[in-house]
């Protein structure tokens, strides 16, 4: 009887801890950034052109690390597209970074899921490592001076009104 009680207790303990992990850190999604500044980067897009993060100074930037194999990433991509549409041109940039995938695979992925924000390639995870991205998806919200304000480890409904409002506030503060 004691053994059964111990086993049940152990299972409940795992449930509570893991539920906390998979729900607790997602309660608000946007985690205030408390680390150092991040490294600037230049990466190639899917056509081979170079894109620098510094090109986007002046308005908030969502730097979104993803992979085409990652199902949560695919779902999140749609909400990022809606966020861009809601926000309007010039007021926010989403810069998606494909992590460790060949360009041809990423091109085909977006051929059937067109988006209207830039996608660049981090084939050897160099930028992902420099930005301490441990899991996919991970996103950083930068202000107009390209200083990190929030990090999102996991998925987020980017088109949620409260998120859009937060991003607008960052944009206003950046001006």
């Amino acid at each position: 009887m004691k053994r059964i009680r111990r086993k049940v207790g152990s299972s409940i303990s795992i449930i509570l801890i893991l539920l906390f992990h998979w729900t607790g850190t997602r309660a608000n999604g946007l985690e205030a950034w408390s680390g150092d500044d991040i490294s600037p980067f230049q990466l190639h897009d899917m056509t081979g052109s170079t894109i620098a993060l510094s090109n986007y100074r002046g308005s908030p930037v969502v730097v979104h690390f993803f992979a085409t194999w990652c199902r949560p990433c695919r779902e999140e991509m749609d909400s990022l597209q809606r966020l861009v549409e809601m926000t309007g041109e010039g007021r926010l940039t989403v810069l998606a970074i494909s992590v460790a995938e060949p360009a041809i695979r990423v091109r085909r992925f977006f051929d059937i899921r067109p988006i209207n924000f830039p996608v660049v390639l981090d084939p050897d995870r160099a930028v992902a490592r420099a930005w301490r991205v441990a899991t996919l998806p991970t996103s950083y919200v930068l202000d107009g001076q390209l200083r990190p304000k929030f990090v999102v480890r996991g998925t987020l409904h980017w088109d949620d009104q409260s998120i859009a409002q937060t991003l607008r506030m960052i944009g206003t503060a950046s001006q």
Binding site: A67, T68, C70, R71, T135, G154
Partner: peptide, 21 residues
């Protein structure tokens, strides 16, 4: 098992646990 996973999957263990997927 997700039959739609390409190939045999990516094997990104930390992302699996982090996202719960």
């Amino acid at each position: 098992r997700n039959p739609e996973t390409r190939g045999c999957g990516a094997g990104d263990v930390a992302s699996m646990l982090e996202t719960g997927n």
